[in-house]
Design a protein around this nucleic acid. Structure first.
Lengths: 226, 226
DNA sequence: TTAAATTTTTAGACAAGACTAAAAAAATAT
DNA sequence: ATATTTTTTTAGTCTTGTCTAAAAATTTAA
C-alpha cells in the first residue's frame, strides 16, 4: 500500500528514473553511475548529483560507489512515465497517422504531461491497447505489464511459424528498413532456412520469400504459434 | 517574410510572450512590467529580467521604463502557442470527453509540446476547428484568426435573438454555473426583458425563460441573427 | 599484494529563472 | 515646483541541473 499523495517529480528526475528502470531490470538491480551517464548522454558527476536527490526524495536507493536502484515509489513513477509514453505513441500512430519510426521524439515530450485523468481518458479513447506501435507492452495504472511470450526470430528453428509482435531495436533506421521490406507488426512469418556462412535467415512472409541478415533477425520478436 | 529557423524558446519564455500578447492587444501595444507580473503571479523584478532576454532574442521590443511589446517573431510565437492551446482543448473536450471547465490546466501543459507536425496532424484529426470549447478562435499556422462578429449578451437589445458563441470569463466557476443553468455553446437565446433595478436580464433559451444577473450576461457572447 | 587503470565522488563554476531589498526613475499630488 | 508615492530596475541570493577538474575509492593487472 502506498500513499496517494504523489510527490512532485521534475521532468529531469523522471528521465533519470526511466534510465535506471531500463538499465537495471525494472530498476531492481543496482546500476552504475557511468551506465546512466552513457545512456543519458550526460556526465557521471551530474548523475551522482541527481541520484542523491532521488534518494533524498525516496525514489531511489543509493549507496556511494555501489550504484542505484529504484524504490517502490520510484518504480511506480517509472512505469507511469512508460505507460504515458507508450499510450501517446499509440495515439500518434493510430489516430494521427504518424509512422512508427517518428513517434519516439514527440512521445518523449508528451510522457511528462501531468494529469492522471488525461492519461486514463486517453487509454479509454484508444481502446485500452496492450502494446505500443513497436510491440512493447503498456503497463496499467498499477504498473503491471501483461507479459506476452515472444522470442527472437533468430532463435527460432527452421519450420517455426509465428506472428511478428515486436522489435528489439526501435531506432528509426531499423523501423524504416522494415517498412522498406514490407514487414509489419502482425505479419505471419515462417523460418525457412538458416545460412551457416553468414547467419542470414530465409523467411516467408505473406507468401513471398526474403532473406534477412543476422542483425535484422536478432532484432525481431515472434510470438510462436502453438 | 520571416526566417523559418525557429529559435529555441523555453516554456517560461512562451508564457511571458503569451502574457504580453494578451495584455497588449496582440502584443502590439506596450505593456507594463507590473501588468505582466500581476497576470503571471510573479514579481516585477523577474519580469524585467525575462523581458531583457526576450529583447535579446528578438522576440520583444523593450525600452527601460517604457514597457514591452512583441516583435513580429514574438507575435508569431504567441499565436503558435495559442493555436496549440486551443486545439488541445478541442481534443480534450471532443475526443476525451473532458468538460469545458477542466481543460485549461492540461492545455497549459500541452501547449508547450514542440512539434509542428503534431499540431498540424491534430488540427486535421479534429476537422480543422475554428473555435475552442469556450468559443475563442483558433489561429491558423500563419497566426491569422477568422474573426467572427459577436457581442455581449448584456449589450443586446430587447427582442434580439442570437446564438451563444463564446464566453468572456472562462473560469471554471462561471463555466460550471452555465452548465447548472443548462446554457451551452450553440444555444439559441432571445433577450426578453432588462430589469432596470438590478440590471438583470430575462432571456429565453430553448423554450424556457430564465433570469441572468448583470455579471453573467456581460460574460456571454452572442452572434446575432441577421 | 602492490601498482596502474578505471570509476565514482567532491568541489567549484555557470546558466536559467525566480526571489528580496534597495536604488533609481517616473508619475502624482500638494 | 517640489515632495510624495508608485513603478521599474538593479544588485545580490537561491535552487535546479549541468559542467570541468581534481580527489577518493574501487577494480584490474602485474
Amino acid at each position: 500500500m502506498c500513499s496517494k499523495t504523489s510527490i512532485l517529480v521534475t521532468q529531469s528526475e523522471e528521465n533519470y528514473i526511466k534510465a535506471i528502470y531500463h538499465l537495471g531490470k525494472q530498476g531492481v538491480q543496482p546500476v552504475s553511475t557511468n551506465a546512466i551517464a552513457e545512456q543519458m548522454e550526460t556526465k557521471a558527476s551530474s548523475v551522482t548529483d541527481m541520484v542523491k536527490k532521488l534518494a533524498e526524495k525516496n525514489l531511489a536507493n543509493y549507496i556511494k560507489y555501489q550504484g542505484v536502484s529504484l524504490t517502490e515509489i520510484g518504480r511506480l513513477t517509472a512505469t507511469s512515465v512508460i505507460r504515458k509514453h507508450r499510450l501517446w505513441e499509440v495515439f500518434l500512430v493510430d489516430k494521427l497517422n504518424f509512422s512508427w519510426d517518428e513517434v519516439h521524439e514527440v512521445a518523449e515530450q508528451l510522457e511528462h504531461i501531468k494529469s492522471e485523468k488525461l492519461i486514463n481518458k486517453l487509454d479509454e479513447f484508444l481502446g485500452f491497447p496492450k502494446t505500443d506501435p513497436h510491440g512493447d507492452p503498456i503497463p496499467d495504472k498499477e504498473g503491471n505489464f501483461t507479459k506476452i511470450s515472444k522470442m527472437l526470430l533468430w532463435e527460432c528453428n527452421i519450420g517455426d511459424e509465428g506472428i511478428f509482435v515486436g522489435v528489439e531495436d526501435s531506432s528509426a533506421s531499423f523501423l524504416q528498413y522494415l517498412d522498406k521490406q514490407h514487414i509489419s507488426l502482425g505479419d505471419k512469418i515462417k523460418v525457412l532456412y538458416k545460412e551457416e556462412f553468414d547467419q542470414s535467415l530465409e523467411i516467408s512472409r505473406s507468401g513471398t520469400v526474403i532473406s534477412l541478415s543476422h542483425k535484422t533477425s536478432s532484432n525481431i520478436y515472434l510470438q510462436k504459434k502453438k
